[in-house]
Design a binder for these strands. Structure first.
Length: 894
RNA sequence: GGGCGGGUAGCUCAGCCGGGAGAGCAACGGCCUUACAAGCCGUAGGUCGUGGGUUCGAUCCCCUCCCCGCCUACCA
């Protein structure tokens, strides 16, 4: 079935067609009732507002490679896809829309606003899913989930209620991070700190009894309006006599106490700290210890409250400026130091975060974290009593994980926004009690009053993501999916959501499923630009994966991702790399064209032991087997770049550069058993290579594989078997024989290249074989050499009279002489030989130095010693033979 | 402040248990050789950040220092 293939690979013509076919045939669908050991992955759900960026592209390419590989290895694979409702981000998107229409969500009302968000989701929420499809992702789209859909919402509610009942969720007044722009509380993780040069203002607070002044230092002077104490270290001699006295707080003119607390570092600032329990986490703690009042001087919008007196209603930063003026004029302001400090920003909108006391919902994390630490450190027993251990790879990240988990603070889960899972708690206006329930209650659970209101807050989006590995499989019901696919095999993600998401999934998975949600956590790189900068829209250095896919094809793009995904290192991506792998696709394509051109009506049958007869056939079959083993091992270890590298090297430099060239004479000859045998090897190796490449380059491999004339075949390369290592195809002899051939051809090519001998000029060669065996081999297989090095003829002897005035190439197995008469000028060869001798000489030196070292000879292991001697022997011989050649040619010259 | 990772060819990076420094791009020279010029053949290029130590032997292990990146932290 020879068919006409385009001269260059055209991805566009291929990708849509096959993707549709795979979906239609249901190859992506996971059926828990089917055979095969389970292999499951849950996708890190992208934000429903998201568009595909490089991080997604890398992340999903790696997952897809694993899934396709495992499917081909006979596993029952589930790749669970879906999106995350991304509370704040999504709400922001829709609020911007409303703003453009001249309205606000408050004008809209809660119900209508939520409807509007759903509407937005219907219209644009599927963007990233379609982009994942362009990437070739083989997710089970029939199971696509959304964190706000009905099933997942039920899981969220169940988890909330259970944790509440267990006392692991509580509500209370604590200091939290508040974003005055998003108007919501944030968890500690959602605050991003940025080092900024700021100022440290010294403020003088006079003692009420007139006995002096205490100078405090602050970076946020406006908070002084809420000060309720001044704290000093109890050991600090300078201030000891002030403890217990009162100072007059300037501006507000309130009396506040001077207290002693070990938290205060006498060495920093003035050694005295103003305490604002309502607006600083440390001050809050001190406030608790000393039973201080909490005065909120800023409201939820970042404006000063009535407590701020004349500054009431003013924006916090404006207030800072005005207040400083007043403090300066009234002599309260002392020195002002330059001070580098970390300022917290909202991770969604970059607004400066204000710590504030607020009534919020929290998860008591410590008991959950304890188990989660154990699961990574030593493993915990699952329901069957067997130990389940999580491996975080690369292992280095485990330390970050432990560090964070061991110092974890309670998780603020309530958000004052509308888009999200509303907290299932009702407040009673009669008795003030809370009712938390699985089904919406109509009366207060305590007093039975009908006068109840639902808590307005929604849950942190990460709360629902934390349940993803089991909520997507139907929990709390006992489903076949959970039974078959939980726990999942591996979680593939970047480190930036290790705490946000991975750690929380581990905690929730252990708590509710009694075992961790995955066995391996593979942390991959971050994609940066060619200069190593983080890609960002504002820097304008973003490489859009979809643009790359349009330009170079999905396969080229994916292979780039995989080839660069070395463990533990960020990817610096440049377009040239993608272009390089586009060329690789083209190379594969042209190899396919070549195969087709020589097929005729040949149809291949599966390769059996002994089918490979000729040297190139035995060699390529052996090499392919080795590569199959290497790729399989590399993928098992998540060494994606090694897998890609092995395949690239094999396809380009072994299959194309050597094998195809070597078999050309056979292919160009008339039909016969020899040709058929070679065609059979050719097609088998090539289609096997397509199978090996398929996890990385799904489209071109399918297109090419489908075009191969196979007597027995599966319906798609996707559902074919991944090549398995098979000792029967390993052939050491063929590999060493090929090495001889390659060495000799390379030697002759080197002479040609170095001495500018036209490729078209045929040369005669005299070969001195190092042994009768080598001579016999070269006599039998020499045609490969004459062909690929364009010789008019080659004579092989074990003892030869060196032809005068000949160029010399030395290989371990043979010396090659190319008579130069009439071919090239002698001087060039003299120069070339000198260079070669010099090179050999340089190579030998370090080894000779080793042997000259007494300690080395005495202490090095014998095999190292032997190897060293062997190397010296080989190089010395080479050098001597080159030198002899040089002597002869110089003699000839005279 | 603490912690982690990195500094290897012009560029981007590999380099497992210490035992001949590799690849891909780029460069240079030569080729339209009937799969592929998005190609073929060949060549050159490295004090493995610095200084020490351990060892017969160090890119690899230990320490110092210098750069770069990241994570983390309640020094107001």
């Amino acid at each position: 079935m020879a068919r006409e293939l385009e001269k260059v690979y055209e991805p566009k013509a291929v990708e849509d067609r096959w993707y549709k076919e795979w979906v239609e045939k249901g190859y992506f669908h996971a059926d828990p009732a089917k055979d095969g050991p389970a292999f499951s992955i849950v996708i890190p759900p992208p934000n429903v507002t998201g568009v595909l960026h490089m991080g997604h592209a890398l992340n999903n390419t790696l997952q897809d490679a694993l899934c396709r590989w495992k499917r081909m290895r006979g596993f029952n694979v589930l790749w669970m896809p879906g999106t995350d409702h991304a509370g704040i981000a999504t709400q922001n998107v829709v609020e911007r829309q409303l703003a453009a229409e001249g309205t606000t969500r408050h004008a809209y009302g809660r119900e209508k606003f939520i409807q509007r968000v759903w509407q937005w989701r219907e219209e644009s929420g599927g963007t990233i899913i379609n982009q994942l499809k362009r990437l070739g992702a083989s997710c089970d789209w029939e199971r696509e989930r959304f964190t706000m859909d009905e099933g997942l919402s039920r899981s969220v509610r169940e988890v909330f209620v259970r944790l509440y009942e267990e006392g692991l969720i509580y509500r209370g007044d604590y200091i939290i991070n508040w974003c005055p722009r998003c108007m919501t509380a944030l968890s500690d993780l959602e605050v991003e700190f940025e080092e900024k040069p700021g100022k440290l203002y010294h403020l003088k607070y006079p003692l009420v009894d007139g006995s002096g002044v205490i100078t405090v230092a602050t970076t946020r002077p406006e908070t002084m309006l809420g000060d309720t104490a001044v704290a000093v270290n109890p050991e600090d001699e300078r201030y000891r006599h002030f403890i217990g006295k009162r100072v007059m707080l300037p501006v507000s003119n309130r009396e506040i106490p001077v207290i002693a607390d070990a938290y205060v570092d006498p060495a920093f600032g003035t050694g005295a700290v103003k305490i604002t329990p309502a607006h600083d986490p440390n001050d809050f703690e001190i406030g608790l210890r000393h039973n201080l009042n909490r005065i909120r001087v800023m409201d939820d919008a970042g404006k000063m409250t009535e407590e701020a007196g004349k500054y009431a209603g003013m924006d916090r930063f404006e207030c800072r400026g005005k207040l400083l003026l007043e403090l300066d004029q009234t002599g309260v302001l002392g020195t002002v130091e330059e001070h580098l400090h970390a300022v917290g920003h909202c991770y969604r909108c970059r607004t400066v975060i204000e710590p504030a006391v607020s009534k919020q919902w929290f998860v008591k994390v410590e008991p959950l974290a304890k188990e989660a630490i154990k699961a990574v450190r030593e493993g915990i027993p699952g329901p069957d009593g067997k130990i389940r251990k999580i491996n975080i790879l690369p292992k280095g990240w485990e330390n970050s994980y432990f560090d964070w988990m061991e110092n974890i603070r309670d998780w603020c889960i309530s958000r004052q926004i509308w888009w999200g899972h509303r907290i299932p708690a009702w407040h009673c206006d009669e008795c003030g009690e809370l009712t938390v329930a699985r089904e919406d209650p109509v009366v207060c659970g305590k007093c039975g009053s009908r006068n109840i209101r639902r808590d307005p807050d929604v849950l942190d989006t990460w709360f629902s993501s934390a349940l993803w590995p089991f909520s997507t499989m139907g929990w709390p019901d006992e489903t076949p999916e959970l039974k078959k696919y939980y726990p999942t095999a591996v979680l593939v993600t970047a480190f930036d959501i290790l705490f946000f998401w991975v750690a929380r999934m581990i905690m929730m998975g252990i708590h509710f499923m009694e075992e961790p949600p995955f066995t391996d956590v593979y942390i991959h790189a971050l994609v940066r630009d060619a200069q190593g900068q983080k890609m960002s829209k504002s820097k304008g250095n973003v490489i859009d994966p979809l643009v790359m896919i349009d330009k170079y094809g999905t396969d080229a793009f994916r292979f780039t991702m995989v080839a660069m995904a070395a463990q533990g290192r960020d990817i610096k991506l440049s377009e040239e790399r993608i272009e390089g792998y586009r060329n690789f696709c083209n190379k594969i394509w042209n190899a396919a064209r070549f195969v087709h051109m020589n097929l005729g009506d040949f149809e291949a049958t599966p390769l059996k032991e002994g089918d490979a007869v000729s040297l190139p056939d035995r060699w390529i079959v052996s090499r392919m087997d080795a590569v199959a083993a290497e790729v399989d091992r590399a993928l098992t270890d998540y060494r994606f770049n090694d897998a890609a590298g092995a395949l690239y090297q094999f396809v380009w430099h072994e299959f194309c550069d050597w094998y195809l060239e070597l078999i050309k004479p056979v292919l160009y000859a008339d039909a016969g058993p020899v040709k058929s045998a070679t065609l059979n090897v050719l097609v088998n190796v090539f289609e096997g290579t397509m199978r090996m490449l398929h996890p990385f380059m799904p489209f071109i491999t399918e297109e090419v594989w489908q075009s191969m004339p196979l007597a027995e075949r599966d319906a798609s390369v996707m559902v074919s078997k991944f090549p398995e290592a098979n000792d029967a195809f390993r052939n050491e002899a063929a590999e060493s024989e090929m090495k001889m051939v390659i060495d000799i051809i390379t030697g002759i090519r080197n002479i040609r290249g170095e001495m500018n001998i036209a490729p078209s000029l045929e040369l005669a060669a005299v070969v001195k074989a190092s042994s009768p065996e080598v001579k016999a081999f070269l006599d039998a297989q020499g045609n490969y050499i004459t062909k690929l090095s364009r010789l008019s003829g080659m004579t092989v002897e074990t003892e030869v009279e060196r032809p005068k005035a000949s160029a010399v190439a030395v290989t371990p197995a043979a010396e090659i002489y190319i008579p130069l008469t009439g071919v090239v000028d002698i001087e060039a060869e003299v120069a070339r030989l000198k260079k070669e001798i010099d090179k050999a000489d340089k190579e030998i030196k370090p080894f000779e130095a080793k042997l000259a070292n007494e300690g080395f000879v005495k202490k090095a292991p014998p095999e190292v010693l032997e190897k060293t001697r062997g190397i010296i022997e080989e190089l010395t011989q080479k050098k001597e033979k080159l030198a002899e050649g040089l002597k002869r040619i110089e003699g000839f010259k005279e």
